[in-house]
Nucleic acid binder design. Sequence first.
DNA 1: CTTCCATACGAACGGCCGTTAGCAAATATA
DNA 2: TATATTTGCTAACGGCCGTTCGTATGGAAG
Lengths: 194, 194
Amino acid sequence: MEVNTKRKKEVLNAALTLFRHRGYESTSMRQLAKELNLEVASLYSHISAKSDLLEVICFGMADKFLLGAKEVNDIYFNAEEKLRMYIANHISLLTQNMDSSIVFLRDWRFLPDDKKEQFVELRNKYEDGIREIIETGISEHVFNPSDIKMATLTILSSLNWVVEWYKPEGSLTPQEIANDLSNFILNGLKKNNL
Amino acid sequence: MEVNTKRKKEVLNAALTLFRHRGYESTSMRQLAKELNLEVASLYSHISAKSDLLEVICFGMADKFLLGAKEVNDIYFNAEEKLRMYIANHISLLTQNMDSSIVFLRDWRFLPDDKKEQFVELRNKYEDGIREIIETGISEHVFNPSDIKMATLTILSSLNWVVEWYKPEGSLTPQEIANDLSNFILNGLKKNNL
DNA sequence: CTTCCATACGAACGGCCGTTAGCAAATATA
DNA sequence: TATATTTGCTAACGGCCGTTCGTATGGAAG
């Protein structure tokens, strides 16, 4: 589904707020309609199904993450630097798109089966990027050998958890968070014989 | 609600499996009844509401976590050792109760309001235990000064994510996972001037 | 001026939801 | 054997769900 009219974008934004705070499955089309001062049926002048809304959110974020990863891969070479940039990009996207991020991390499971398959493919592609950096670091004797899959998932879980506690008005900036987490993670990965 | 009859326990077990794989909200009483070869109404001879089942699961796990934390606090003194034992206990409980853990981590939000409040209190108590260890480590100059709240939540997210990928038949034992995660986390926390 | 498209409506569809009332059989307890 | 408790049933309740049909309006594009 393309978001090609102003009204469509308004519908999407209202849905985004509701999905974030109530979850996709617990948000009804009737609630969404009320939020927009519309009748339920009118929503279907703009979208063809509720799941359209979830799709736009999930794939929109997936694209952003993959684009950022691609840029990092094109510019940086050394494993530590690359991982730091991956983390900075990840935290920046999460904190700048809190609503979408929360929905996309929590509710992708409710995508229709075929879309869910596509989505998981994209997510695996992103995870592979991190896995490869760790592998490079290990083979270049910069990182300690470790279970690579576990390291990747542990790193991602630390990063993604940020949406659960980050407050834009809080004391830590996204840059500081990214930096702290990078230090934390790299201390966990790096050889200690410097 | 007490689980005081055999049949009640069977109902609870069936619910647990369904909740784990479909989520609490997406599991209907009719599905649960079918799983037990019962009519829907018969379920209400054993429980008084669907939310009873979620309560038993969530508070059952909360109790286990807090009990483990209490034991660790009673035995160990030094901050690093204590944190290692906290982590070992946490991973052991998660991997030995995969179904309950997944439900309890994901679906506690759907507890009725009053029970949810109680639950969050218990969770905060558990988080405080970890926070205190980190504070002790910092004040004893064993750990680097850092944002303590962030460190606590980052550690918990790394630990809890384990339920997303742990496979009992996989190559890593819970002990190995706890050990690897402890090293990873402690490297991130410890002063490097040894 | 007409055609087209975005936008919105009321009414209804079949279906699933958690829960209750009232009753019956089985099983354990005394 | 009499009594109490556990376990189960049929039928129904009001309510919410996503979606569809047919229709109407208003403004932009040709």
